[in-house]
Design a protein around this nucleic acid. Structure first.
Length: 180
DNA sequence: CTCCGCCTACCAA
DNA sequence: TTGGTAGGCGGAG
């Protein structure tokens, strides 16, 4: 009778927006914490459908999640301003692989204003040859900015890639005073 | 198993 | 310096 866990296809996350001067980010929360963060769709300024008034009934959102959202919002805005993020909400990496988690944890250890290469991350997690795989994990990072995948550069201080757009990566690095 | 990717080191111009 | 390339690894289908 153990219903196949595989039927749990839908995590059913609660989505809440975070409006910043860079546009509206979208945060996704599970009952365990922040599970995802998306960059703004349009560029700052273009107010398109103005939220299409999908007014989520604030009343039905667990207080716990609202608290995490406040924390996440503050942290995101700080980093976007090139400042120390302070407290983080718990991060929910359910559904991801151990390899990816190890890579993301390693990235969380990179201090603001500092960088590491894909190779250094690979070495840090004990898989010195999995360099390219580290790049893959960075690209799969569900919580960009807070989990600083932008602080990972290619060898020789080259900018490397960024699935959400190199423009974002370059911009985030600049805000932290990083040169490349 | 195959294909692809936020990489690298290396070699040829 | 710039460009092309083969090796290596994990993830997705």
């Amino acid at each position: 009778m153990a219903e196949t866990l595989k039927n749990q296809r839908k995590p059913e996350l609660i989505e809440l927006p975070i409006t910043t001067r860079d546009g509206e980010f979208m945060a996704h929360y599970s009952e365990k914490g922040l599970a995802g963060l998306n960059f703004p769709r349009a560029k700052p300024g273009s107010s398109r459908a103005a939220g299409s008034s999908r007014a989520v009934n604030a009343k039905q959102i667990p207080l716990q999640i609202l608290q995490w959202h406040r924390t996440a919002t503050a942290a995101l805005k700080k980093i976007l301003a090139g400042l120390e993020p302070g407290e983080f909400p718990p991060l929910d990496w359910a559904g991801t692989t151990d390899f990816q988690k190890s890579v993301w944890k390693a990235m969380l250890k990179i201090p603001l204003g500092k960088t590491k290469s894909y190779g250094e991350i690979a070495q840090a997690i004990g898989k010195p040859k999995a360099v390219r795989a580290v790049g893959g994990a960075c690209g799969a990072n569900p919580i960009p900015v807070l989990v600083p995948c932008h602080r990972v550069l290619a060898a020789n201080n080259k900018i490397g890639g960024f699935s959400s757009g190199l423009g974002w990566k370059a911009s985030l690095l600049e805000r932290e005073g990083i040169e490349f």
